[in-house]
Design a binder for these strands. Structure first.
Length: 575
RNA sequence: CGGGGCGUAGCGCAGCUUGGUAGCGCGCACGGUUCGGGACCGUGAGGCCGUGGGUUCGAAUCCCGCCGCCCCGACCA
């Protein structure tokens, strides 16, 4: 491709709208352009990188035994009503009516459509297992699109669905996808961590997210410094602290006028926060109240709490609700005497404490020397606190660390969540109808492009991994009109082509500095320069974008040198 | 949805306080000099000053409404 023909304008200045390094570079390098909030065009260069990524993913899905198809983005409401997600699924579904006043949506995901398809086509267990996938545009009316193509309202996703006759089959499909994901991300030059995740509203038993570690990631991931334990903070478990053994003392009331917060209380009682127990009051669906006890220096993990109690909704209670429940204003809540009016949940660490401090459910009063069992009885004891760095690992003696990550893949064991609601069944050997067991597996393809750039750039621009670079080589002819140089360039291009290496030839009538700057910004893995210095020995200057290493190569050897820099044959794949 | 910020040329911004009909840099077009890390000189094109209303002789500027965009939070496969 000649630069003079390429539909590309690079930006010298940083667009004001972009905050993250990757988003800025994608705009500056002319990979994407914005149409509206969270809605982007992919320009030829950006699209080409995305196509290379799609092809890698496609190859890995195919070799895992999956088949590609294409499902409609336009979906009738009836399917979503059948699965129960038309109203629950909520605000992010883009809905509208057709001319006949029929409800439709633009597909945010395709569990319903694929389940509908499979229930019509699959009659027998002999047609299973089945893995079907597509690479297609998804639509979600995100509350807050951000960071360019990392969270957008229209995006490209690979979604794969597995159908098995039993749970053992699902385990096989799930593990096969796990391996395929790992392989695909590696090939894309992306560092990822697979973490335990909360299945959330989509339902199902197990789920894992593939995270690309990055400071601009929206998720916090918790990783053990010793073993392989890793989890999304929303789902991270923590090994309980060892139980205290001191003898129980008599519970007493202490007057604490206007002392409401833990920090006020530590000062007032001259006790550390880890001797206190916070009681947080939540309202679940249908007026059910939940009181959650965590140590004074900890936070509640609301996601863990929600899935633990299997609650559809959960919100902090309003001050009036707290006063109705406890008889005291906010700041004096405690578990004693609350058992009948609320579900009392105690964090595992609190369960091991003796003689702690809680609110007394009376204005301006706290209890000291509270003990579980004697003074109140919890309904549930479980791990409901938010993990933080330094916490003990649930699997080994190590301790947990924290980093941010971009979620680029998510795999779920759905089980019968959709197949049951939509009656997708098949007959087994005995002629008995069996509900099909399902899994679903997503990769955010357009997000992956952004994640690759977030992980691979420097101050001067993008540093594409060879396998996903829109082109492999950026060729600069220093003196555009020079015929001797042009002849060398032509020969060089021919050797690249015959080696399966693709390139951009910067043939613009610009000064060398401009071309070098654009070469760094666009960030193809190799830059090749042919100029006055090349003529005498018929050489090409070859520079590695990542290492900065530069060498002269004889024209005859140049293609081989380039290939070596690209990492050998494995990375050379044209779109 | 709550908080904050911003909408002026393709991009980055000034002008608004104190109303008088729009400017700078980059980019773009043309000519010339240049040419190994974003050159220089000259000429030029390009603007319902987000949008609707109001105040005024007169509004980019003051007032009110709406829309859009960005950030933080809430929320979220």
């Amino acid at each position: 491709m000649r630069m003079s023909n390429l539909f590309l304008t690079t930006l010298r200045e940083i667009p004001a709208e972009a905050e993250t390094p990757g988003h800025r570079l994608m705009l500056r390098a002319g990979l994407i352009r914005k149409l509206a909030a969270g809605v982007y065009s992919f320009m030829p260069l950006g699209y080409r990188a995305m196509e290379k990524i799609s092809n890698i993913v496609r190859q890995e899905m195919n070799s895992a035994g999956a088949q590609e198809l294409l499902l409609p983005a336009l979906q009738p409401a009836e399917l979503w009503q059948e699965s129960g997600r038309w109203f629950k699924g909520g605000k992010e579904i883009i809905r509208f009516k057709d001319r006949n006043d029929r409800d439709f949506c633009l597909g945010p995901t395709h569990e319903e459509v694929i389940t509908d398809l499979v229930r019509h086509e699959v009659r027998s267990y002999r047609q299973l297992p089945l893995m079907l996938y597509q690479i297609q545009t998804k639509f979600r009316d995100e509350l807050r699109p951000r960071s360019g193509v990392i969270r957008s309202r229209e995006f490209i996703m690979k979604d794969l669905y597995s159908f098995d006759r039993d749970w053992a089959g699902l385990d096989v499909s799930y593990n096969r996808m796990y391996e395929a994901y790992d392989a695909a991300f590696k090939r894309c030059g992306l560092k990822t961590v697979a973490v335990e995740a909360d299945p959330g509203m989509i339902g199902g038993t197990d789920s894992m997210e593939f995270m690309a570690p990055s400071d601009v990631g929206e998720d916090v991931i918790i990783v053990c410094d010793t073993c392989d334990y890793a989890a999304n903070r929303e789902a991270a478990r923590i090994r309980p602290a060892t139980a205290e053994t001191e003898p129980e003392r008599e519970m007493e009331t202490v007057l604490t006028p206007d002392v409401r917060t833990i920090s006020q209380l530590t000062e007032f009682l001259e006790l550390p926060a880890d001797r206190m127990v916070k009681t947080l009051v939540y309202r679940a669906g249908e007026g059910r109240m939940v009181a959650v006890l965590v140590r004074g220096d900890r936070e509640v993990n609301e996601v863990k709490l929600t899935s633990l109690l299997n609650l559809g909704e959960l919100a902090m209670a309003e001050p009036e609700e707290i006063e109705n429940l406890t008889g005291a204003p906010v700041g004096f809540s405690g578990p004693v005497g609350l058992e009948d009016a609320a579900t009392v949940v105690v964090d595992t660490d609190v369960a091991g404490m003796r003689n702690f401090v809680t609110g007394a459910n009376a204005p301006d009063a706290h209890f000291i020397n509270v003990n579980i069992g004697r003074d109140f009885s919890p309904d549930v004891i479980d791990d409901v606190k938010l993990a933080r760095p330094g916490d003990p690992c649930p699997k080994c003696d190590g301790s947990l660390t924290e980093q941010r990550g971009i979620e680029i893949g998510h795999i779920f064991k759905l089980g019968t969540r959709y197949t049951e609601a939509m009656h997708a069944t098949c007959l087994d050997e005995n002629g008995t109808e069996q509900v099909i067991i399902m899994g679903c597996y997503g990769i955010g393809i357009s997000r992956l492009v952004a994640a690759v750039i977030e992980q691979n750039h420097d101050d001067n621009g993008i540093i594409w991994p060879a396998a996903v670079a829109p082109y492999h080589v950026y060729i600069v002819q220093i003196t555009p009109g020079d015929e001797e140089q042009a002849a060398l360039v032509q020969q060089f291009c021919a050797t690249l082509e015959s080696s399966g290496i693709d390139y951009i030839l910067d043939d613009r009538d610009e000064r060398p500095g401009v071309k070098f700057k654009d070469a760094d910004l666009i960030g193809l893995p190799v830059r090749a320069v042919i100029g006055p210095r090349s003529l005498e020995g018929r050489t090409v200057e070859i520079k590695c974008r990542r290492s900065g290493e530069e060498k002269k190569a004889a024209l005859a050897d140049a293609a081989m040198e380039v290939k070596a820099l690209l990492g050998g044959d494995a990375f050379v794949s044209t779109v």
